[in-house]
Design a protein around this nucleic acid. Sequence first.
DNA 1: TGCATTCGTGCACGGCGTGCATCGAGTCCG
DNA 2: CGGACTCGATGCACGCCGTGCACGAATGCA
Lengths: 206, 206
Amino acid sequence: MMMSVVETGRRERKKLATRAALRQAALRLALRDGVENVTAERIADEADIARRTFFNYFSGKEEALLATAAVGAEAVVARFRARPPEESVLHALREAVLEVMDRDDVAGHEHVAVLRLARAAPSLLPQQLSVLAAQEKALAAAIGSRLAEPDDAYARLCATVAFATLRLTLDRWLERSTGDDPPPLEVLRAEVATAFATLAAGLDRP
Amino acid sequence: MMMSVVETGRRERKKLATRAALRQAALRLALRDGVENVTAERIADEADIARRTFFNYFSGKEEALLATAAVGAEAVVARFRARPPEESVLHALREAVLEVMDRDDVAGHEHVAVLRLARAAPSLLPQQLSVLAAQEKALAAAIGSRLAEPDDAYARLCATVAFATLRLTLDRWLERSTGDDPPPLEVLRAEVATAFATLAAGLDRP
DNA sequence: TGCATTCGTGCACGGCGTGCATCGAGTCCG
DNA sequence: CGGACTCGATGCACGCCGTGCACGAATGCA
């Protein structure tokens, strides 16, 4: 039983492909028919996979849909780890977030599409929050290993507050959507910068 | 169709009683048999109410269980509104939280019991986060009406960060549970104070 | 007292999530 | 190469979930 990340077998490749197929099928159906009309059965059919097998990969349609968003949150943590250690915590966090946002690739567009679906579909909110909560632990660990002296309380507070701020900023950005596409990325970048600046300067006000 | 909060009729009293009976039955069963062994049917039977009627009051067992916790979050918002306007935002928030915690009544003990259940039962996490997210709007509105000049971005950021901090602090407090009961309240009060102090002083670190 | 609401309830139905047994492709080893 | 082993994919069955619908009873009102 190896825990290596790079499992080089045909089996592992097929598993990855199956998971991706299900994830994309879920997103396609949600965009085409609306979130409320998506069932596990339909997703499985769309990907030409048995219903039972779908549940081997995801606990439900919500998890399949938000798996796309989870990749984005993981990416933020990964980028944060890669930031130079001399940067302050909030500075590194902000840059990590901006780096992920600047990736204007297919995964990014899918991520935005999922977030827009989640905004309109209340049934996705619990799962969306759970995804962030799960990544909080990873981010807290990453922050902790950056500190000169360990401070679990501070690391976890930072992680929690950072993701909460990110979620709020994205929500406010999507809220401004005119018609059927989101505002320009520059607006989002500016909002992220000001939010993190507020946190760094001290949140209190008279 | 009156929207008054105090509906003084026999009907309203019975509805409140039914809701409370279901809520308490859910908590009783979860504590006795474990969260995973609680079903809507059992809750309804325990309260001597039809299964169908249960779903007229709650969307599922998770909501019935977390309803107890939701009351606590609402109380924080209510106390915050009652704080004198000359206090700074974070100061008023901290005092509001401490006021609610100091209420050593039955509702408080039930609230703690539910939080301890939620910590051990992953299936309750999504709903727990949703409860807080729902109260964020109310808290943001309360903060907004306190500010000299309106600042929606700041108000919502404060509300989100405050509840996120509260959730984290409670989690860390329950984490320290020795055996079958939580650490003393004084520890919790101190943790809340330091967390809010950190936010007020600025979250960033080298 | 009679009428209008509204609540509680039973019924039915489609969807959900999982344990279990089976089959077959992929992997390993001699 | 070939046999044995591993593990994912699948079908089946079952209990639970959440809701639309219809109906009767309790409540509120004039």
